[in-house]
Nucleic acid binder design. Structure first.
Lengths: 340, 340
DNA sequence: CTTAGGGCTGGAAACGTTTACAATTTTCAG
DNA sequence: CTGAAAATTGTAAACGTTTCCAGCCCTAAG
């Protein structure tokens, strides 16, 4: 394997100068820089990042911790972060926590501490005190997406506000009998995200003077499958059925649409449905939603971190609110006159 | 930061012995091992993987190259591989090629050559000669999933066989007017996967003496959205419509189901639909499919690689066929008597 | 004509491990 | 008990960079 020594020899320079020339740090004369570059490319030299990391303390590697890969939000964040990192020449190390508590434990207690990453992005993770400790023990910048993360910068959307916005969209169309599909306890513990969106929903309803009917608030696990089951129950009681459903995520809205079809309910004629997210499927299904640009959030997290890393700054905790956008499609409409 | 020296000092041993004790390699007396362990945990010592990698040449890190994260197959492979790697104490570095040709180029020409990974898993990537060269230039074991990869071990399913199996399932129910949704040219260039499945379909049809109608073979891009559009065209011609659709992937089958619903076609009464994959949504939609256990394939790839790495063997190219399973749900049925 | 200061360069000391090698101790068959 | 082989241990040399430091040359101000 050709090392930096070979390059130095070939270029007729010292190892130190070659290192400076190739990394772009420090002062090197244009002549030397060019000679180093030429020699390196002739030899097909590529840096050993282990050696480089060991000597410099920079790893050019960012850790991304997610609870799941296949769920829409996380895969979108991964794609956004991945592209941004690739452009910056950084590696992305993926830690998928999954359901297994042991995996979760080892990620926080072993993997992240190995000094392999320059920074960490944690997505939608509710962390225990101990886990937060471990994160900060790395002494690396951290950005949290989609949830609070004490002591770290976070990127989030205005959950309460968009829930109100969504609810108001339905109210504005004339709906009053609106059901809400929220997350279940597990998620609320983690994050309060379902709770926050639910509050937004309730506030908007109250402001409009519409009663919130407890039996029309059902919970699911944020997946299509889960919401499908929940929506079936909700929609089963034919005599008194909501005219609109606001789901706390697009995946749950999709589950609702599928369930509605099982009952022969046409959308939006018999039932208006909307969600929150900007899921790719939304387009096909004509789902009205609030796009939260998950890819953009991933990319923003990367930019935030890289900025801090290259400037060598300590990232002071800041809370960035990511913009969202109401996307009206065909799953919501004015309620049919005389619907119950 | 506490290093191995501190541990050695505290344990009253030499650095070498501590290293051997903690890594489990070489002979160490039980007493010393225990003392080393104790000292390490008291000090909260964690190995610097950079230093370790530099000295040993082992990175405890596997690279995973995928064309996309959000599509079902890839996210499933990622989850399978991720869990297996986590258990083995390995990091997973994700290279998401995406659509951008520049990203693709830099992954093969920069990232992978940085000697940062012990092995590489390439998923469903059609590689140019040059890219294959680059891969092998790493001198690291490689496993390909879901497609041929010259000179490397591959894990694949019997595409032709399962296409025949799927088609036979429909034929067995009594269908003769069967359409097929295949991948488009881009994918066939890459991979011949759509072509192979399509051949399987045609063979089964021919064996059964059923005509294959060219206008009933439509292509899409393997996504729900793409297949939705394609299926709408296919199903638009009401007077002469197939009674069953076999899609080359579950996502395309789902797109078909959504399109069918737009036309008021009931499934399976008016139209039987089946796919290939084992997509999570299949359960909700009652989709009959052939489960290819993508997670399992990811995990198998990891086990294959790790076996080779730990034994220090060169991985001789082998082709492993992963088993698949026909899952009959409610999207396929005997065709209605008298349907055209 | 001095001299301070800055650009450029090379030597060599890190960075924190692993591991070859040699030295020492233990084990055990004869 | 003896010697050979095996087990255990420590010393020190890698691993391939980055970066501190000192030296040199050159410019420009005084």
């Amino acid at each position: 394997m050709t090392g930096i020594k070979d390059v130095a020899e070939r270029a007729g320079l010292s190892v130190a100068t070659v290192s400076r020339a190739l990394s772009g740090k420090g002062n090197v004369s244009p002549t030397s820089r060019e000679r180093a570059r030429a020699a390196a490319s002739e030899l097909g030299f590529v840096l050993s990042y282990h050696a480089s990391s060991l000597a410099s303390g920079r790893t050019h590697n960012v850790g991304l911790v997610v609870p799941s890969v296949h769920r829409w939000f996380f895969s979108a964040v991964i794609e956004g972060a991945s592209a941004a990192l690739l452009e910056a020449g950084y590696d992305l190390t993926l830690y998928n926590i999954g359901e297994n508590p042991e995996h979760r434990h080892s990620v926080f207690n072993d993997f992240l501490l190995r000094k392999r990453v320059d920074a960490v992005i944690a997505v939608s993770l509710e962390l225990s005190e101990a886990e937060i400790q471990q994160l900060h023990a790395m002494h690396r910048p951290i950005v949290g997406i989609g949830g609070p993360l004490p002591g770290a910068s976070t990127i989030r959307i205005d959950d309460s506000g968009i829930a109100r916005k969504a609810t108001n969209h339905l109210l504005g169309l004339g709906h009053t009998k609106i059901a809400h599909i929220t997350g279940n306890e597990a998620y609320d513990q983690d994050f309060h995200l379902p709770g926050t969106r639910r509050s937004g929903f309730e506030e908007a309803m109250n402001d409009a003077g519409c009663p919130v009917r407890p039996e029309w608030i059902v919970s699911a696990d944020f997946t299509i499958e889960g919401a499908y089951a929940a929506a079936r129950q909700l929609l089963a009681s034919a005599p008194d059925r909501p005219t609109a459903v606001f789901a706390a995520s697009d995946e749950m809205a999709i589950g609702t649409i599928l369930a509605a079809r099982d009952f022969g309910l046409r959308i939006p004629d018999d039932l208006s449905v909307m969600g929150i997210d900007g899921h790719d499927l939304g387009n096909v299904l004509g789902l009205t939603t609030i796009d939260q640009d998950a890819k953009g959030q991933g990319a923003l997290a990367v930019r935030t971190l890289l900025g801090a890393i290259t400037k060598g700054l300590v990232l002071e905790p800041a809370d960035t609110e990511h913009p969202t956008k109401l996307v009206v499609r065909s799953s919501t409409a004015v309620p049919k006159a005389g619907t119950f």
